[in-house]
Write a protein that binds this DNA or RNA. Sequence first.
DNA 1: GAGAATTTTGGGAGGTTTGTCAATTATAGG
DNA 2: CCTATAATTGACAAACCTCCCAAAATTCTC
Lengths: 223, 223
Amino acid sequence: MTLSGPFALEASNLGKSGRTRARLMDAAVDVFAREGFQAASVNEIARLADVANGTFYVHFRDKDAIAAEVAYGITREIARQIDEAMSQIDGAAERFSFATRQFIELATTQPMWGWVLIRSAWIVPELNHRVETYLSSDLKRGVKQGIFNREIDPFIVDAISSMILSALAARLRGDAGEEAGSRVSELALCMLGFPVSEAKALAWSAITLQDFSTNVLPRAPKP
Amino acid sequence: MTLSGPFALEASNLGKSGRTRARLMDAAVDVFAREGFQAASVNEIARLADVANGTFYVHFRDKDAIAAEVAYGITREIARQIDEAMSQIDGAAERFSFATRQFIELATTQPMWGWVLIRSAWIVPELNHRVETYLSSDLKRGVKQGIFNREIDPFIVDAISSMILSALAARLRGDAGEEAGSRVSELALCMLGFPVSEAKALAWSAITLQDFSTNVLPRAPKP
DNA sequence: GAGAATTTTGGGAGGTTTGTCAATTATAGG
DNA sequence: CCTATAATTGACAAACCTCCCAAAATTCTC
């Protein structure tokens, strides 16, 4: 039996249909991560989910439909998790730095989700868009708090988010270590108008990162 | 007759084989730009180049082979052009800023090349790698000149290059105007340790951008 | 447990893709 | 003009893909 992924775990208390659907989504994550959205085939997703190819079409209209669902599920879960972990943090700069570092640690704990973000972000606009929405809200909070002295518009949000994605990619490839999150966070803070020393202090401060792998989704009840 | 692209012009004085090869490369650029590397099919490239599908395989082993050639051709020409245009500039920061701005103007004058860079950079490693090589050399020059007070390693080069690509994408989509080059250049200079005011001054200084469309490749002789 | 409703199955029609190759056409040198 | 060489062609096998649907299996309800 294939070991079930995050979506399957989450759906373990749903009806049969819901569970199959979730299995397909986990399989899709796997295929998207390995081959990217474009090269992925419905056939392979079904094969990996251990269902007949016809079953796929019972649950999703086509590849785009499952991609949208997967994008939604991934980004929602990541955002929920990060948000919860930093509910106590108020300063926008601290929040940004924490979120960035935590986000990049995704690479260690849920590499497949990371790869999907990297390999499909440019093709499934939903993905990029949602990442940028979350990012944007903390950046704007910073402007309100008078901390970032740079106007926040889609251009700069885009720039920062693609920088973060590139750091995530480096981490996934193994080209960067744990410091990746701090480094990119420092660079971004500089861009936002922070003096180098302050950016460094914030970005490299000791924090406790959540362990995605155990917390991101509710545990499945033991069988 | 299909209007010939840059590669065909460049090859107009070559033998028949060379010209066909070049036509295929221009067609490949077109298809890659529209659909991305993964979704592109050899068939469509051949169709667009107005040759039989078998002809493709005479000139290239497969899609990867032509992608590598195209990547090589595009990056070499862009680099050559930018390099020539800034041969008089010596300061690393000025060079970086000029190159960045000039590079992004590629979006206006050779949008297809721009799209290829955007849509295929993550899939054809050759592309990213070459862009980063050129970028790296000017950044390192800056360190030698004592201008950038930040260690230049692949991580930061990666970060900057993906930021530049995101600006190029915004420009191609029409979401950003002429100012895109200056904006991203300013952001990057901040990251490299420049005080905001200096970064602004450099990034927004008046410069004369080369007109890629007329200069990037030698003119074809009139028939 | 029987019958109804839900879910899954897998074969197949119709299409596209890759890569090959014998046959055809164009080009160039004598 | 004629021939040797180079270049191109297009049909084709084999693989794979999407999407459909009647039949089989499973689950639910009473």
